[in-house]
Each structure stands twice: as structure tokens, then as C-alpha cells.
Design a protein around this nucleic acid. Structure first.
Lengths: 190, 190
DNA sequence: TGGTACATGTAACATGTTACATGATTAG
DNA sequence: CTAATCATGTAACATGTTACATGTACCA
């Protein structure tokens, strides 16, 4: 058997459905909250994966509740497929960082312009770090012991954001604090 | 005008073509080397983008060289489209980190198993950091001054890998060094 | 009764991945 | 002569994004 190979996104949905039956809406919210920091997904994707999983028999739709709510329950086949996924060596992470592209091609834009982008991104990272740290401070000790896993993923987020901030703050002055003016140096304005 | 909106991948190709005409093969190699650490692309994608860009008039194919080599030159329209792209506020980065999914669902696999995954990923990150640091040490001072941009992106890689290693090394013992045995605790083996 | 949050879904499109097919040139 | 590397590309598929369409229930 072991016939249906789930992808990481579908596997995550199966992971959450181990806890309790949920509808697409709940799954979107749950995923956003629990894995959104390192795994993005949209509701379109979730609904699509759900119908695929249902067709493959890995989950089963229950009766519609209020507001057309459609709960799904994981099946034994679903638990099997999930287990198979979770035991596979995880792929390398992929990072796609558009700001770094802009930095790489930095000679093609006015330095003040790049500095504005950097400042605004720095702020986003500072805000995220603050948010993560608040969340981290709010974790009760007993939870930390019984489920160290989600704490660990949060700690990755904190480590990442700290590294990002440090990077922003250690950029050379030539990039971070350009002298305004002297625009004729830059080919984008020729 | 300003009619053709390039995506970040296509824009990067245009960015490289500012320097000199290149064929798809060169562009793949160049991209891998210069932006591969924070922007992945495959050769299929490159060839597809190249024909799209050519059809849109942003680049022009030259005469075939040896081995059917097909060089492309950027056009004025291409430079315009690139400039438009580079002046736009870059999107947030996306990180997709499968290992963190596995960690999040860590209660579903035997702890020794997770520990093996963590160790192997830790090693990859250590190797990447070492590579980056070697590259960084090899940059001549004059280059650093004249093109601080690619140095900055490399430094991001270093900051990121250091943060990752620190995270691995500070994982709680319950995740990093599980006691073997006691398998009946884990629902994946029920 | 009107706005907001809940809830599901489709369609079209954009992007990214994998597998395959083909041939040229070079180094040993 | 033959294996490796260079070089281009297509086809099929998987995944991800955006915009749209529809309707329900609650609450002020």
C-alpha cells in the first residue's frame, strides 16, 4: 500500500487533524498560528488539499454544521500517510528573500532609496522579534516541559529575527547611511 | 508604457544581463553563485523566463555560438523594466523550513529518529557556514569597498547560519539527546 | 438593518519541480 | 573512442497566489 504520497502542506493538515476534527477555516487559522512563521499557506490551498485528501480517503467529511461548516476527521489511512511523511528526512529549507536581491543589485538604485527599504524591513523584523519574545515569555513552565516542540520552533523564529536585526545593524555605512545627493553616480538615473 | 511586469526571478536575470550578454547556461551558473543562497531557481525556469523576456522584447537573442550556445543581450526596454522592478518595495521574505514542521510534529516520531534528522541538518548548516566564512575571508579589501552589496548578502548568509547553529545547540536535551527505548510512549508505534 | 466575522469554494494564472530528450565539444 | 561536461530545451505535473462569488450568523 503506502500509495498516496502527501506533501508537507497536506501532511501538516493531517498533523493538526490528529488532535481533533476541524473544518478548513479552523485549519487555516491553526496553521497560520502554529506553523505560519516558517510555512506559509493560503486558504485556497487548504481547501484544495482537503478535497484531494478526502478523495484519497485520508480524511472524511462529517455532517455540515452551522454556516455550512464542513468538519473533517482523519482516517487510519490518513494516520498512516502522515506517519510515513513524518519519518522521512525533511528537505532543506528554502529561503526567498527579495530584499537581498534588491541589495545585490544595489548599484542600480539611488542609495537613499535602498536605505528606505532597509529601514522599513528592519522595522518589520524588530516588530516580529518583539512579538515572538512576548509569546515566548507567556509560555507556562509545565507546557514547556510537556510540549517542547512548538517552543523550539518559536525559538528558531527568535534566533532568526535576532540574526536579521544584527545584520541590518552591522551593514556598512555606505549602504545604511548614504549621503543624499550626487545622483549622477547612479546609472538608474541616466 | 511600462507594460511588462517582471517577477523577481526574471528581474534577476535582467540584472545579470546588465553586465554582459549571457546564455541560459551562464545565467544559471551566475544566479546559483550570486543569489543562490537566498533565491533558488532551476534551469527549466531560466530557459522559460528567457523566452518570455525575449517575446516581450526585454532581451534579444544573438547568433548561436559553439555548442548551440544562445547569448542574450538586454534591450533598453529590458533596462527600463528592471529599473521599475528594482525601485519597488521588496516583498517580505518567505521561509519554508520542513525540518521545523517535523519538529513541530515531533511527538509523532521516535525521539531518536528526530535527533538523527536534527544532527544531519546541523551538519549541513555547519558546512554552509564554513563555506561562507571562507568566501568572506577571501574578499580583497578593494572589492569590499567598490561593491559592498554582494558582501552584504554574504554576510546575511553568515548571520543566518550562525543563528541556525546556535539554535541547534541550544535545543533542550529532551529533543536533542533523547534516551533511547521507551518506544511505547509514541503514538506512531502503536 | 447594516456591518463584521465566519465559512466555503472556484477559476485563472503564476511559479516551481522533475523527468526526459537531444546533441556538441573536450579531455583523457 | 568514450566519458564527462557543456548546452538547450520540452512536457507534465505540483504547488502557490489572486481575484472573485456566494451565503450565514451575530451583534450593535
Amino acid at each position: 500500500m503506502t500509495n498516496f504520497n502527501v506533501n508537507a502542506t497536506a501532511a501538516s493538515l493531517l498533523g493538526f487533524l490528529h488532535e481533533r476534527p476541524m473544518a478548513g477555516w479552523d485549519l487555516v487559522a491553526t496553521a497560520q498560528q502554529r506553523i505560519g512563521n516558517f510555512w506559509s499557506l493560503t486558504k485556497s490551498q487548504v481547501y484544495r488539499e482537503l478535497s484531494t485528501l478526502a478523495r484519497a480517503g485520508l480524511i472524511e467529511a462529517g455532517e455540515r454544521g452551522p454556516r455550512e461548516r464542513q468538519p473533517y476527521t482523519i482516517t487510519q489511512a490518513g494516520r498512516d500517510a502522515f506517519r510515513e511523511w513524518v519519518l522521512r528526512e525533511p528537505d532543506q529549507e528554502t529561503i526567498r528573500f527579495p530584499l537581498l536581491l534588491t541589495v545585490m543589485f544595489g548599484e542600480h538604485l539611488p542609495p537613499e532609496h535602498l536605505a528606505v527599504f532597509l529601514a522599513s524591513h528592519r522595522e518589520r523584523h524588530a516588530a516580529r522579534l518583539e512579538m515572538y519574545e512576548e509569546q515566548h515569555a507567556g509560555i507556562p513552565e509545565e507546557y514547556r516541559e510537556r510540549n517542547p516542540f512548538s517552543v523550539a520552533t518559536l525559538e528558531f523564529g527568535i534566533a532568526y529575527e535576532r540574526a536579521a536585526l544584527e545584520w541590518f545593524d552591522n551593514l556598512p555605512a555606505s549602504i545604511r547611511n548614504p549621503v543624499a545627493g550626487r545622483r549622477e553616480d547612479f546609472d538608474c538615473l541616466k
